[in-house]
Design a protein around this nucleic acid. Structure first.
Length: 183
DNA sequence: TGCACGATGAAC
DNA sequence: TTCATCGTGCAC
C-alpha cells in the first residue's frame, strides 16, 4: 500500500480531514500489522480555535501540534484513554486532525467507534506521541481499492466549552458507515 | 504545591 | 446523569 507523502499533510486542515476518510491507518505492534480504515475525523484549526489544545499556546503537551506536518500527536484524556491526531499544515501552525473512528480491516480486536476505543484497539499510546507517520511502523496509506462514499459534515463532539467554535462544522464522517461513533 | 477539568466510554 | 482516573495548565 502506498504511504501518504509529507505533502499530503502540509495542506489546509479541513482538506486533509476530508481526504483522510477512507484511508488506512496502520500500526505494526509486536510484529502484528493492525489496519483500520478511517471513517470519522475532526479538524482542529490552530491557536485561534478555542476547542483546539493548541489554543493554550505551545506547551510541553502541545509541542508536537506546532511541529511539522505528518507527525502523530497522541494525548492522554480522562485518566484512561488516548486519542490520536495527525499534525497538518506548515510547522508552527498548531493545527491537526483527530481520528475519531476506524473500521476494522486487519488484526483488530475490540470496538473502534470513538477516539479512545480506536487507540486501545490499535495499541496506540503516549509512546507514539511525536512519531513520524512516514515511518515504517506507524503510518497512513491509500487503500488498495477505493470505494466511493459521501461525506457528512457535523459539529465536533465534546467541545461545548469552546463557545462559538463548538458550533463550527468541523467533524466529517462517511455516510452510513456502521463504525462512526455518533451520527 | 494544589486543584479543577477534560477532543471519553460505559453504566445506571 | 454519573463515575472512573490522572496528566496538564494555571492559580496561589
Amino acid at each position: 500500500m502506498k504511504k501518504l507523502p509529507r505533502a499530503f499533510y502540509n495542506r489546509d486542515t479541513i482538506t486533509v480531514a476530508k481526504e483522510l476518510l477512507g484511508k488506512y491507518l496502520i500500526h505494526l505492534s509486536q510484529g502484528v500489522k493492525k489496519i483500520g480504515k478511517i471513517v470519522e475525523v475532526e479538524a482542529y484549526l490552530g491557536p485561534h480555535d478555542l476547542a483546539s489544545h493548541s489554543s493554550k499556546g505551545m506547551t510541553n503537551r502541545t509541542r508536537v501540534m506546532f511541529g511539522p506536518p505528518g507527525f502523530a500527536y497522541v494525548y492522554f484524556i480522562y485518566g484512561m484513554y488516548y486519542c490520536v491526531n495527525v499534525v497538518t499544515e506548515e510547522e508552527g501552525m498548531g493545527s491537526a486532525v483527530l481520528i475519531r473512528a476506524i473500521e476494522p480491516v486487519k488484526n483488530i480486536e475490540g470496538r473502534t467507534q470513538g477516539p479512545g476505543l480506536l487507540c486501545k484497539a490499535l495499541q496506540i499510546d503516549k509512546k507514539l506521541n511525536g512519531h513520524d507517520l512516514l515511518s515504517d511502523d506507524f503510518y497512513i496509506a491509500d487503500p488498495l481499492t477505493n470505494e466511493p462514499f459521501s461525506i457528512v459534515r457535523k459539529s465536533r463532539i465534546g467541545v461545548a466549552y469552546a463557545r462559538h467554535w463548538a458550533k463550527r462544522l468541523l467533524r466529517f464522517y462517511i455516510r452510513g458507515n456502521a463504525f462512526v461513533s455518533k451520527s
